[in-house]
Design a binder for these strands. Structure first.
Lengths: 351, 351
DNA sequence: GTTAGCACTCACGTGTGATGAGTGCTAATA
DNA sequence: TATTAGCACTCATCACACGTGAGTGCTAAC
């Protein structure tokens, strides 16, 4: 028994209908709604075959059929047509994205928002792993007698700073010297390299300065490196799930929301996903509480190096074609925005 | 008919029991659980009186009594005993707060987290209105040929920066001069003053520089001022509501979460609340969807000037005494942390 | 003034039966 | 031989009835 033309046609119709309605579809409904050209009886026969082959299931004898995860997988691999976005949708995405194109993190957060709005599902966006982000610039700036600002700028355009308290007072020249010295030591190093470096010995000649650095600056420097390395995960539209019949059961909704709240686990899971557009269906997900969900994610790149991810999570019954297109269009936009000549800081050219 | 000793005793017992169980309490249950010293019949009489006075309601004839909002108000005003925190709880709050005492916003966000953990309700924390925050320092720093970082430091210790693209190239001295000039113009001004100022004329003498400032710097400066003014609202523990029987109904849970998602409305509502510890019960709240909730909030102060708010939202059935104590203890801690001699930047002294 | 007793109320859980969408099988049809 | 009409059967769902029990209000006794 093989998947002939007609079986595929029936399967496709069942998937379409179930994705739209969330109700098991029966043979009669199918003939009424879709002009397939055969009687319910024929469809029933095909359905029985498809069930035997593992593409359909039966909640109970007298109910209609439901596509299995295997069916969704087949659909995604073979049957799915990318659903082009409308002009309006495209415009909405580009314009909204650009309107908020200030800081990397803000942009990413906003992308998640746009995604959840369009898909009406829960969207997430992960800032890049920044191991490969290169330090460009470190500077210590005087604020007042006992306060100094530590500023670090990286190639990805990420700026980080912290104000620190210097107990013993300081000279402005000292700060300048330190700024130069730090920049010299760290410039061109990736964050993950920087974090492992130990540059204290460089100042051994000057006891005073060494103490200043050791006690006041280094801990903050390291901490800031770590902060910059950190991946941020933004979620948006979690309450969209209440519109889905899958989550009309409170305990399911709760489980879903609790899963989203475990940001560490979510981040770990997302990091492990492949490059480009990745679709995982139900049981293909590793996290236990995700096994009745599907994820559609795609990677975006900053200057071709740093890799972040953005995507959607929802029940296995989702509009794979449409959502895949949206996610892809969105990452294309992010990629373009982040790889203007000269890197992220070029945003001015977009205006 | 007045609220004699015995009526208050009965009312208190009913409130305690209902807060603990969320079930209407009957006269028998009351005598069994609490050693009040009178028979169920007597209590029934008192209950009938209390109901007539508006302190109790009846879901239906054959059910027990439920405290009305009027009863909670009486309880909060008269009967409630502040429940001292345990040593362990106090320690947990102080230590967790201090461990994260880096940046104002992070600390506030973390405070919301602690609060939701302890109360097992949804907590929120609002960063201060920063109209009164005073600019200390503005600086433009060279990064590379076409990129400049704009940094603004305010008295509250908030540091904000943006990288900007300068099309025409620049001299380092120009930046230094601009930094000094900006600092001179804005130093000592509050953010809300700064945002209304127009300092362009100061550079009229130098056409080149004026263009640089006008086209590249000013828009960002203003935008950054606005960003710094913005109030941030952090929420934590929204999924705690799933443990409450009040939200076992999906549509209620949904309404609650949707309400929380309307951050603008939430922020507006919170801003309008009074100083110090404020408790609003049910109908006393202005937002429609909050009318079956109670809020307990308190203000914290930074350097005695900027005012932020932190608090808890949950069903009217909540442990007012305990939560009020927690909220108060937490704001006390924030106040102390934010008013060390020299302001927020003094955090080093805490370590 | 307090309490025991009793009739009454009503949400809740359980059981029953009707309904209808759907199936699988068989036999007739093209 | 593939398709379809017909029919008996299944089973979730809904409405309704009924028993149960926690709780009330009233009255009369203490």
């Amino acid at each position: 028994m093989d998947l002939n033309e007609r079986k595929l046609k029936v399967l496709q119709a069942i998937i379409s209908d179930f994705v739209a309605t969330a109700e098991p579809v029966g043979s009669r409904t199918l003939t009424r709604k879709y002009d397939l050209g055969f009687s319910p009886a024929t469809i029933r026969n095909e359905m029985a075959d498809l069930e035997e082959m593992g593409y359909l299931t039966h909640p109970h004898t007298s109910a209609g059929r439901i596509p299995s995860e295997k069916a969704y997988r087949l659909y995604v691999n073979e049957l799915m047509k990318r659903q082009e976005l409308t002009k309006a949708e495209k415009d909405a995405i580009s314009s909204q994205l650009m309107a908020n194109f200030d800081e990397l993190d803000k942009t990413i957060e906003h992308a998640a928002h746009i995604l959840s709005e369009i898909t009406q599902l829960t969207a997430f966006a992960m800032t890049p792993r920044k191991e490969q982000d290169v330090i460009k610039y470190i500077r210590l700036l005087p604020v007042d007698e006992h306060t100094v600002v530590l500023m670090i700028v990286s190639e990805s355009g990420k700026i980080s700073n912290q104000s620190l308290r210097i107990m013993q007072g300081y000279q402005e020249e000292t700060l300048d010297m330190l700024s130069k010295s730090f920049t010299y030591s760290y410039k061109g190093k990736t964050l993950s390299e920087a974090i492992k470096m130990d540059i204290i010995r460089d100042f051994e000649s000057d006891i005073e300065m060494m103490r200043l650095v050791q006690d006041n600056v280094m801990p903050h420097l390291m901490r800031t490196f770590e902060d910059m390395l950190n991946i941020n995960l933004y979620l948006d539209g979690y309450s969209n799930i209440f519109d889905l019949p899958e989550y009309s059961d409170i305990s399911r909704a709760r489980m879903f929301l609790n899963m989203l709240n475990r940001k560490d686990a979510m981040t770990d899971e997302l990091i492990r996903r492949g490059e480009g557009l990745t679709i995982t269906i139900g049981d293909e997900n590793d996290i236990e509480d995700m096994k009745d969900c599907s994820l559609i994610t795609a990677t975006y790149h900053i200057d071709g190096k740093l890799v972040g991810r953005i995507g959607v999570i929802g029940p296995t019954r989702m509009k794979y074609g449409k959502i895949a297109s949206v996610v892809e269009y969105l990452t294309d936009n992010l990629n373009n925005a982040f790889t203007l000549p000269g890197g992220q800081n070029d945003k001015e050219q977009e205006r």
